[in-house]
Design a protein around this nucleic acid. Structure first.
Length: 466
DNA sequence: TGAAATGTTGGGGCG
DNA sequence: ACGCCCCAACATTTC
């Protein structure tokens, strides 16, 4: 019998459109599916609490779909992979690429070690529509502005992304390598039971991801362009955690969305939705070409910016106790569900960096720990974007007004009333500015005066914008 | 993928 | 009828 192939699962926890798994299957040999929780190499970017909760569910689903043959390990992948490859007598190790700097560095080492050991190593594109090295300007430098990146760099130069490939029909499995642990042993589930709401809100895993996509295309694609801005509407896909863990591939999302778009003559909505996948590509591109993106402002002039230090204000922001209903609603949605509507992410982000003048890293850190869709590329690129120090960033003077944003995008107050119940009985008129009424609510006074905070921010940001 | 300040226009009330 | 004022509505500029 010929030697088995190890398929190393990472952020591609699915069978459909999984190039590494498919390639191993096509070799017609035994497959050994492996997952490694690597908290050794990930530095400051070890998965946060919410991400771990999600991963626990997702690994169980993947293990089920592999008939219980997923072998799980914890530790330094650079030690574990060569060791199990040897003990299993494997001929090859296949995986789908990840793009976080700590991973690319680690994987490079592993690839070399395996090759030195005489193994075949192949990596594939399972997570992006186009590879970061295939999109660059005519002068070979990476794009830093979204629109030309997407239109020219991606669509015009590379064309439509490839169609998804099917799941392997019948896999045969090699023996589990020694030293594997159970998924429970990874200790991914929180010790305090805080995840009741999350359980109700989400269905991690490949089936849940596909169902979510179909529900969205059915109920949310029509009207997406406008409706996606309203946090109480069903016009957002909520696919981000599924995409992050690779429970569904972006190629599948892209092509299914386009099918529906064409069938229903929803061109504008479909294109807008696909361009959101484009933003995901853009973030990954930035992270790949600028590996310090999570740490350092992309625009150097921000190195001199004097962010405030205020632990109490940070805590009030984190807990959703700023006294601005739309901000607090978002922060509480995040805490309860591991997710926040994108429009509201922009509002709370602007509030942290421009109203409170706190460093965007505080926002990045908090989101990293609390989001189920925490993704290094998206999270870093987006925080730099809202802070104004990133690529194609919001100009320094773009400061969201939390009252008018609330009135504009949550006019009926359904979203705020759901997450900030203590002011639910206020009339619509005062819901986004409760300090303007005498009604007695057990709700904090505004942490800052927005008008005043705005002027202070304008002065500070202007000073470095030279 | 803002918002506020400032400028312009035009209808209507009024003497 | 006419000029004047007010102000909403819209446009432009500024941060």
């Amino acid at each position: 019998m010929s030697k088995p192939i190890i398929v190393w699962f990472r952020q591609d926890l699915r069978r459909e459109d999984n190039p590494a798994l498919h390639a191993a299957y096509e070799q017609g040999v035994h497959v050994i599916p492996v997952y490694i929780l690597d908290d050794v190499n990930s530095g400051d970017y070890k998965m946060g609490g919410a991400s771990r909760w999600w991963l626990h569910q997702s690994l169980n689903k993947l293990n089920d779909s592999l008939s219980g043959h997923l072998s799980v390990f914890a530790g330094d992948a650079a030690d574990i992979i060569p060791k199990i490859a040897k003990s299993a007598g494997a001929q090859a190790v296949y995986w789908n690429r990840c793009y976080e700097p700590w991973r690319t560095e680690r994987d490079k080492t592993i690839k070399q070690t395996l090759k030195d050991d005489g193994l075949d190593v192949k990596s594939f594109n399972g997570s992006l529509l186009w590879e970061p090295w295939d999109t660059h300007k005519d002068d070979d430098t990476p794009y830093k502005v979204f629109t030309p990146f997407y239109k020219k760099g991606c669509l015009a130069n590379n064309g439509e992304p490839p169609h998804p490939i099917s799941a392997p029909e019948r896999l045969t499995y090699g023996d589990a390598p020694k030293g594997a642990v159970s998924i429970d042993d990874l200790g991914l589930m929180p010790s305090i039971k805080w995840y009741d709401t999350m359980d109700k809100e989400w269905t991690p895993g490949e089936d849940g991801a596909m169902q979510r996509l179909e529900d969205f295309l059915d109920q949310g694609l029509r009207g997406y362009k406008e409706g996606r801005n309203f946090p109480d509407k069903l016009n957002v896909s909520r696919l981000s955690p599924h995409l992050h863990y690779g429970e569904i591939s972006p190629r599948t999302v892209w092509h299914k969305a386009r099918q529906v778009m064409i069938a229903e003559h929803a061109e504008t909505d479909g294109e807008t939705f696909c361009s959101e996948l484009g933003w995901r590509e853009f973030s990954n591109n930035l992270l790949y070409h600028f590996p310090t993106l999570p740490e350092e402002p992309l625009q150097e002039k921000f190195n001199n910016f004097e962010w405030h230090k205020n632990d109490e204000a940070l805590e009030r922001w984190q807990k959703g106790m700023t006294g601005y209903p739309i901000v607090d609603a978002g922060m509480r949605e995040l805490w309860a569900t591991g997710y926040m509507h994108n429009r509201v992410r922009m509002i709370v982000g602007s509030f942290l960096v421009k109203d409170l003048l706190l460093h965007w890293k505080h926002g990045e850190r908090w989101f990293w720990d609390t989001l189920v869709d925490a993704d290094l590329a998206n999270n870093s690129a987006s925080w730099q974007w809202i802070a104004g120090c990133g690529a194609d960033a919001a100009p320094y003077f773009r400061i969201f007004n939390p009252v008018s944003q609330g009135q504009k995008f949550d006019p009926e107050g359904n979203y705020v009333r759901r997450w900030v119940p203590e002011i639910a009985s206020l009339p619509d008129k005062y819901l986004h500015a409760p300090w303007e009424t005498d009604h007695d609510c057990d709700y904090p006074d505004p942490i800052v005066d927005h008008k005043q905070a705005r002027e202070e921010a304008l002065a500070l940001f202007k000073a470095i914008s030279g």
